[in-house]
Write a protein that binds this DNA or RNA. Structure first.
Length: 288
DNA sequence: ACCCAGGCCATCT
DNA sequence: AGATGGCCTGGG
């Protein structure tokens, strides 16, 4: 059986919050409130009633393996409550941000997808980032068969309970699928050259993504198009180094506004990246 | 209603 | 410090 159903009863899991957090650009919240995304070739569909129910399907992969993958992907073995309780009691801003953002988690996403996505994200806005990534997948990704997931979900929830966004009919393309491609028609702007060059260096073996180990900042910053901020995002979201602390324009704004110009990430060794997510999402929520 | 400037999960030269 | 590109927002 290559499908599983899994329940998540956890105060520290909120699919809407995760989807809006800017760590993933291919999670789709659908009309009926369900969430759809791909993890590699594994198709995932999440519905919420009192708790979350996750349905996942991947051809040729055992149920046990899929479950293991998802536990890792959602970071379910980590106690986010404990992390929140480690916040310094005098930091009222972070306490409030974490309280409101308690459903946030740092996902364990595919490293290649994260590297490309965050190169695209530089000096960019989220609608445009999503659009470029969608075009990239649509043009170069591999067709995903959704029928297995659909029948699995409908067997459990009834006919018409399953929907799937058009944007997720293709996988995120591997370096091999992008070999020699000109990426000038994806709305990437000047970033297209960075990705073309990266594809070359990965295929030639000059850049060995599978061998990246924490800390990877120096290795990452050798890649053209990756500076300090994008490197930190890749460490946090792609290598799951929860101590990485990306300083984007929002965080800088937060630091000016609440922290006299500097948030001391050394107070939170090993978890500063999670604190960054709480602050980032909190400050953005104020604007909406 | 329309336009335009400015900013965006920055980095390169 | 100047350039890069498309999307969105806010002010005029």
């Amino acid at each position: 059986m290559s499908a599983i159903k899994m329940e998540i009863c956890n105060e520290y899991f909120d699919s809407k919050a995760i989807s809006d957090s800017g760590q993933c650009f291919r999670w789709y919240i659908q009309e009926d409130g369900s969430v759809a995304f791909l993890y590699g070739r594994c198709a995932v569909f999440v519905v919420q009633k009192d708790f979350y129910t996750v349905y996942a399907y991947e051809k040729g992969v055992s149920a046990k393996k899929i479950e293991e993958k998802l536990v890792r992907y959602f970071d379910l073995d980590r106690d986010y409550g404990e992390i929140i309780s480690s916040i310094r009691p005098d930091d009222k801003v972070l306490l409030k941000a974490a309280d409101e953002g308690r459903g946030l988690r740092i996902l364990n996403q595919d490293l290649w997808e994260i590297i490309v996505s965050f190169i695209i994200s530089q000096n960019n806005n989220i609608p445009r980032i999503k659009k470029s990534i969608y075009k990239l997948c649509e043009k170069y990704g591999e067709e995903v068969d959704i029928k297995g997931l659909k029948s699995f979900v409908e067997k459990d929830l009834g006919k018409g309970s399953f929907s799937w966004p058009l944007e997720l009919n293709k996988t995120f393309p591997t370096p091999q699928m992008l070999e020699g491609k000109i990426l000038d028609d994806l709305g990437l702007g000047y970033r297209d050259k960075y990705i073309e060059e990266l594809v070359c260096s990965v295929l030639s073996g000059e850049v060995k993504i599978d061998e990246f180990k924490i800390p990877a900042e120096d290795e990452l910053m050798k890649i053209k198009g990756i500076g300090k901020k994008v490197a930190a995002c890749i460490e946090l979201f792609g290598l799951h180094d929860l101590g990485a602390f990306p300083r984007d324009t929002w965080v800088k704004k937060i630091e000016e506004k609440y922290y006299n110009g500097r948030f001391e990430e050394n107070f939170y060794k090993g978890t500063a990246g999670i604190m960054q997510q709480y602050l980032f999402c909190y400050e953005r929520s104020l604007k909406k």
